[in-house]
Write a protein that binds this DNA or RNA. Structure first.
Length: 576
DNA sequence: GCCGTTTTCGGCCCGACTGTTTTCAGTCG
């Protein structure tokens, strides 16, 4: 099993946790955590870089030491230094850090004084009332630890962005109903458009913070209160989602919005920018000594630092500060740029609506075209189409097209890629279609090389238009199958076909790093809902958020084109 | 452990809340 970036990142996180418990230099610990994040985000596998003897220290945050550790991990599967560190402490001690309220100092104390080495021994000690006896800890902390252990699966939970949206909307309405509230914003990873959300961060501009807190905590869907201070409160909703609220005065609203939108890495980089000017940036504003330079709006803060306003989706410290300083940020794609959808299902396979219903719904949404792309015969569980049923379907599409003015239904198929990379329908019928989507729905357990070559063969088929959901992942449920996506991107570029960004909230496949790589390599992306009913049209917004995080502009996205332009693009993907 | 228009040393983001130790450390974001 090769060492993946995710494995390297996990090793660095582990090293950081262990060093923290040992009380090591906090900046050294931060360097490990920073490196873990950098490595995790890379679109290229570092194992390949090591094999090619590329200079790893060119990566930001990776110096000689960490570069050597990466090479060692890739070449030997292990790092002597990290292993030594691991052996100096009990094997499961870092599990204790997952308990809210337990940080490195307390874990160290629990281990030193009570020989607590893992979650079971922590639970035992808490139940025996031993923890309250320690200096600096008390009865309340002990109870908090016990309830956290019991709720552990819940507290570490993340939610799909799409799952959280209705809860966020409802709570926003609740806050706006408070007479003391002047303005409400949702910040955090939600505003950055991340695919999953850990908690919701609400920000309110109001003069009477206490009244707003009271109103906030009186919310009917509140399960329990986690914190309640002068300007900050925190609760858990019955749905399990944690919500934090911060109340700030008008003059700090922009600074607070920026601060609580994050990400952490972006904030640190921004504060450094401020520091270089001998200024200070915090959630109250941008300050020159005692004097506020900016704070009421985000725009003013960026402007004071001689930067363009950075869209929240880009705030991950992946080059956006430099681009903003050069005024070269991309003009990110917007939902209104989308003019059609090239991946949708009907009742002919596993969809819920007829072709006409799907088409009328798309037209009402302002689209100019829709591709009906039902499953192919191999996918029997989805009632996949064989050649003769597909021919019948094409007649129905012709009929509906004749009735609909100013709208075009494209004839398509989502054809299964078979084990050997060939397609699940004969060429004779594929040649009659406008859109041929190739998809993996089986054989997820091939090696990365086998899977990659299988898919590349499917891309080589002369009728292929694009590859759907390229990695097959289901967020929070199923990891991607092993596949070399950069190689697929390079191959799609050579072949002249597209890759899909599947907008289904559980897929969002391609991820943002691969979107960015596809953009750099010049491979067009098509953002599709993969709708199985008319209700799924809303998913386009989730896909757009992901595309924006991948730095995509209107030009990189196929289905921002007019009907006429896209017809040419579809023809150009054909090799026959 | 990283980094450099303060460049090979000496910095490294900053503030709120909680519980408990009555003046603050630890945790969190």
């Amino acid at each position: 099993m090769p060492m993946l970036n995710a494995d390297i990142a996990r090793q660095f996180e582990l090293a950081a946790d262990l060093l923290e418990i040992k009380g090591d230099n906090p900046f050294r610990i931060r360097a490990y955590r920073n490196a873990a994040r950098i490595v995790e985000d890379l679109p290229h596998e570092l194992a390949g870089w090591v094999a090619d003897e590329k200079d790893l220290t060119e990566l930001p945050g990776i110096g000689k030491d960490l570069a050597d550790k990466i090479s060692e991990l890739v070449n030997t599967g292990t790092s002597v230094a990290i292993d030594t560190l691991r052996q100096s402490l009990p094997p499961h001690i870092t599990d204790l850090l997952t308990i809210p309220g337990l940080g490195p100092k307390r874990v160290k104390k629990l281990y030193a004084e009570l020989k607590i080495t893992d979650l079971p021994s922590l639970k035992q000690a808490a139940e025996a009332g031993q923890i309250r006896e320690l200096a600096g800890l008390g009865e309340k902390t002990e109870k908090q630890i016990l309830s956290a252990i019991e709720a552990q699966t819940d507290s570490s939970r993340r939610f799909l962005r799409a799952t959280v949206i209705p809860y966020a909307d409802a709570l926003q309405t609740h806050l706006q109903a408070c007479a003391r509230v002047h303005r409400v914003a949702i910040a955090g990873s939600y505003r950055r458009g991340r695919e999953t959300i850990g908690d919701l961060d609400f920000l309110v501009w109001a003069d009477d913070a206490a009244a707003v807190m009271e109103h906030f905590l009186a919310y009917e869907d509140r399960q329990d209160t986690l914190a309640h201070g002068d300007t900050k409160s925190s609760m858990r909703l019955k749905a399990g989602i944690q919500v934090d609220l911060r109340v700030v005065p008008k003059e700090s609203f922009g600074a607070a919005l920026h601060y609580f939108t994050g990400s952490k890495a972006h904030n640190i980089a921004m504060r450094k920018e401020a520091q270089q000017r001998k200024w200070k940036l915090n959630e109250y504003g941008l300050f020159d000594g005692e004097n506020a330079v900016a704070g009421e709006t985000e725009e003013a803060i960026f402007a004071a630092l001689e930067m363009e306003w950075i869209p929240p989706e880009l705030r991950e410290n992946r080059g956006e500060l430099a681009a903003a300083a050069e005024h070269s940020l991309p003009k990110l794609i917007e939902l209104d740029d989308i003019r059609g959808n090239l991946h949708a299902h009907s009742r002919w396979s596993d969809g819920k609506n007829t072709i006409e219903e799907m088409a009328r719904s798309a037209k009402e949404a302002g689209y100019e075209y829709l591709a009906i792309t039902d499953h192919s015969q191999r996918l029997t569980v989805a009632n996949g189409l064989n050649e003769s049923r597909l021919r019948e379907q094409l007649e129905e599409i012709d009929a509906v097209n004749q009735q609909m003015k100013g709208f075009r239904i494209f004839k398509g198929i989502e054809v299964d890629i078979l084990a050997d990379g060939s397609l699940d329908l004969p060429d004779s019928i594929l040649r009659e279609l406008d859109v041929v989507i190739v998809s993996v729905h089986s054989k997820f357990n091939l090696s990365a090389q086998e899977q990659t070559e299988r898919i590349m063969r499917a891309l080589d088929h002369p009728c292929t238009t694009f590859l759907a959901h390229p990695t097959g992942r289901l967020l929070l449920a199923r990891p991607p199958y092993p596949v070399d996506v950069p190689r697929l991107i390079a191959h799609a570029c050579e072949r002249g076909c597209f890759l899909e960004l599947n907008a289904n909230p559980q897929r969002l496949d391609l991820n943002e790093s691969y979107c960015q790589l596809a953009k750099e390599e010049g491979v067009p992306i098509v953002i599709n809902t993969d709708a199985h009913s008319t209700h799924d049209a809303v998913h386009m917004a989730t896909g757009i958020a992901q595309a924006r995080r991948g730095w995509l502009t209107k030009d990189h996205v196929v289905n921002t084109r007019s009907l006429k332009a896209i017809q040419k693009m579809l023809r150009d993907t054909r090799l026959d």
